[in-house]
């Protein structure tokens, strides 16, 4: 497959890049590692007039410990750079593990944190070559008002498969978005929309420049199930965090990934753990609640019956792991 034609822009500073995004508006697409974007372009899912590469912008590549004990990560850090970061591994092991689980070493060498957070949603019908897609009508993601997965749907149900997203929510992280008009911080828990086409709150001309992690609190784990350990996008992911003891948790946050257009915060399951502590019985109840709360489980890479069983198993295993985790 070959790439479509485009104009290539390579700003050297963030300011220059923001100006380019402002000037070209909807005709411009941001590229970081390109490990997802270039493939979507080969599929003709993205055909930007201007491709703005932020790979030369050094100011977006730093890992900086904060005075309050937190950590700030530049959006342009590669996943390999982050996987090799000792401070990340030590203070935020669940995030470290999630980033390390992305694709393969080859992919992580190019892939960036910003690209992972902004990763476009994916669907089995649409993330295919143009020839393949031509065999049926278009969909919400291309040129039609139709979802091939849920026929009655009034919006796109493509999946958010970012490995970092669920953990970032559990860690209470926020992202910094910049445009020529200034910057704003958005908690990752408010960054995603439940719509496969318009899947983030980013506005035209904005770019994600970095992530702020508050000082680590309590314990957290990340679990991912995919067809193969390496290379595959997840069939389901789960991030869990607990502050306080197993018996009397102060707060609990549970987030499921790769089950819909946005990471799904499991409020019911978290309330069960918070009320009865983290023990064998509550884990079983929370896992059942997780399965129930997902409703129509919209992943098309596996049948929904499988997905429901997977959700329960993933939640149960990971919560067991969290219970036994020492800090």
């Amino acid at each position: 497959m070959q790439l479509p034609e485009f104009e290539y822009l390579r700003p050297k500073t963030l300011a220059e890049g923001l100006a380019a995004l402002a000037e070209h508006g909807p005709d411009a697409t941001i590229m970081s590692g390109g490990s997802d974007l270039l493939i979507n372009m080969k599929f003709r899912l993205d055909t930007p007039k201007y491709l703005v590469s932020f790979n030369a912008v050094q100011e977006m590549k730093a890992i900086e410990p904060q005075a309050d004990g937190g950590l700030s990560l530049g959006a342009g850090c590669t996943l390999t750079q982050l996987a090799e970061s000792e401070v990340l591994a030590e203070k935020y092991p669940a995030l470290h593990q999630a980033l390390f689980s992305v694709g393969s070493k080859h992919v992580r060498n190019a892939a960036t944190l910003g690209g992972n957070i902004c990763l476009d949603t994916r669907c089995w019908y649409t993330n295919q070559s143009e020839n393949w897609r031509e065999t049926r009508d278009g969909c919400f993601k291309t040129d039609n008002e139709l979802c091939h997965v849920i026929k009655s749907a009034d919006k796109c149900h493509a999946i958010n498969s970012s490995d970092s997203a669920p953990v970032l929510i559990v860690l209470d992280a926020s992202v910094t978005l910049a445009s020529v008009n200034g910057t704003r911080d958005v908690p990752v828990s408010e960054f995603y929309n439940n719509d496969g086409v318009d899947h983030t709150v980013m506005r035209q001309g904005e770019i994600l420049v970095g992530v702020t992690l508050p000082p680590p609190k309590g314990r957290s784990v990340y679990a991912k199930l995919a067809q193969r350990d390496g290379l595959d996008f997840a069939s389901g992911t789960f991030a869990a965090g607990i502050v306080g003891s197993n018996e009397k948790p102060e707060s609990v946050c549970l987030v499921m990934g790769s089950v819909g257009p946005e990471p799904k915060v499991l409020a019911d399951s978290a309330a069960i753990i918070k009320a009865s502590g983290l023990n064998e019985e509550s884990i079983e109840t929370a896992a059942l609640a997780a399965r129930a709360s997902l409703g129509e489980v919209t992943n098309l890479f596996t049948p929904s019956g499988y997905k429901r069983r997977l959700v329960k198993a993933l939640v149960k295993d990971a919560l067991g792991e969290l219970r036994d985790l020492q800090v």
Partner: peptide, 13 residues
Amino acid sequence: GEAVLSCCALAVE
């Protein structure tokens, strides 16, 4: 010496 997927890299970069 790192592994680079040349199919997913732009030559201009």
